[in-house]
Lab assay of single mutants.
Amino acid sequence: MQRVNMIMAESPGLITICLLGYLLSAECTVFLDHENANKILNRPKRYNSGKLEEFVQGNLERECMEEKCSFEEAREVFENTERTTEFWKQYVDGDQCESNPCLNGGSCKDDINSYECWCPFGFEGKNCELDVTCNIKNGRCEQFCKNSADNKVVCSCTEGYRLAENQKSCEPAVPFPCGRVSVSQTSKLTRAETVFPDVDYVNSTEAETILDNITQSTQSFNDFTRVVGGEDAKPGQFPWQVVLNGKVDAFCGGSIVNEKWIVTAAHCVETGVKITVVAGEHNIEETEHTEQKRNVIRIIPHHNYNAAINKYNHDIALLELDEPLVLNSYVTPICIADKEYTNIFLKFGSGYVSGWGRVFHKGRSALVLQYLRVPLVDRATCLRSTKFTIYNNMFCAGFHEGGRDSCQGDSGGPHVTEVEGTSFLTGIISWGEECAMKGKYGIYTKVSRYVNWIKEKTKLT
Results as ranks from 00 to 15, higher is better:
2 Q>Y: 13
3 R>T: 04
13 G>I: 14
14 L>R: 02
15 I>G: 02
18 C>K: 02
19 L>I: 11
23 L>K: 01
24 L>S: 03
26 A>E: 00
32 L>A: 15
35 E>C: 05
35 E>V: 07
35 E>N: 14
40 I>A: 15
40 I>T: 15
43 R>G: 12
47 Y>L: 07
47 Y>N: 15
51 K>F: 04
52 L>H: 14
53 E>R: 04
55 F>A: 13
56 V>P: 14
56 V>T: 14
60 L>D: 15
62 R>H: 12
71 F>I: 14
71 F>P: 14
72 E>C: 12
79 E>Y: 11
86 E>A: 15
89 K>R: 08
92 V>M: 11
94 G>L: 10
95 D>A: 14
105 G>E: 08
107 S>H: 09
107 S>Q: 12
109 K>G: 08
116 E>V: 12
117 C>S: 03
118 W>D: 14
120 P>L: 06
124 E>P: 11
125 G>K: 06
126 K>Y: 06
129 E>F: 05
129 E>T: 05
131 D>R: 06
135 N>Q: 12
136 I>G: 09
136 I>M: 14
142 E>Q: 06
152 K>R: 14
153 V>A: 06
158 T>E: 04
159 E>A: 07
161 Y>I: 00
163 L>C: 02
163 L>G: 01
167 Q>T: 09
168 K>L: 08
169 S>A: 11
171 E>G: 05
176 F>K: 04
177 P>N: 01
178 C>G: 00
182 S>M: 10
184 S>K: 10
186 T>S: 03
187 S>Y: 07
192 A>N: 09
194 T>N: 08
197 P>V: 09
200 D>H: 03
200 D>V: 09
204 S>L: 13
204 S>M: 13
209 T>N: 12
210 I>P: 05
210 I>H: 05
214 I>F: 04
216 Q>M: 08
223 D>Y: 04
224 F>P: 10
229 G>P: 08
230 G>E: 11
236 G>T: 05
237 Q>I: 08
243 V>A: 09
246 G>M: 05
250 A>E: 10
250 A>Q: 09
250 A>L: 04
251 F>I: 08
255 S>D: 01
256 I>T: 02
257 V>P: 00
258 N>P: 00
260 K>C: 02
260 K>I: 03
264 T>E: 00
264 T>Q: 00
267 H>T: 05
271 T>P: 05
273 V>F: 06
276 T>Q: 05
280 G>H: 02
280 G>N: 02
281 E>W: 10
281 E>F: 04
282 H>M: 05
288 E>Q: 06
289 H>I: 10
294 R>H: 01
295 N>K: 10
303 H>E: 13
304 N>F: 12
308 A>V: 09
312 Y>F: 12
314 H>C: 03
318 L>D: 00
327 L>G: 01
331 V>W: 00
332 T>L: 10
332 T>S: 14
334 I>W: 00
336 I>H: 01
337 A>P: 03
340 E>P: 12
346 L>R: 09
349 G>E: 08
351 G>A: 09
355 G>V: 12
358 R>Q: 06
362 K>N: 15
363 G>S: 12
367 L>C: 08
369 L>P: 13
371 Y>Q: 11
372 L>S: 08
374 V>G: 03
376 L>G: 03
376 L>W: 10
379 R>W: 13
379 R>S: 15
389 T>N: 13
390 I>R: 10
391 Y>T: 06
401 E>N: 07
403 G>N: 08
403 G>Y: 15
404 R>V: 08
407 C>G: 04
407 C>F: 14
410 D>E: 15
412 G>S: 04
420 E>Q: 06
421 G>H: 11
422 T>V: 09
423 S>V: 14
423 S>M: 12
427 G>C: 00
430 S>Y: 03
431 W>A: 05
433 E>A: 14
434 E>L: 15
437 M>Y: 13
439 G>V: 03
439 G>K: 13
440 K>C: 13
444 Y>V: 15
449 R>Y: 15
449 R>M: 15
449 R>T: 13
450 Y>D: 02
455 K>F: 05
458 T>G: 02
458 T>W: 00
460 L>T: 05
461 T>K: 13
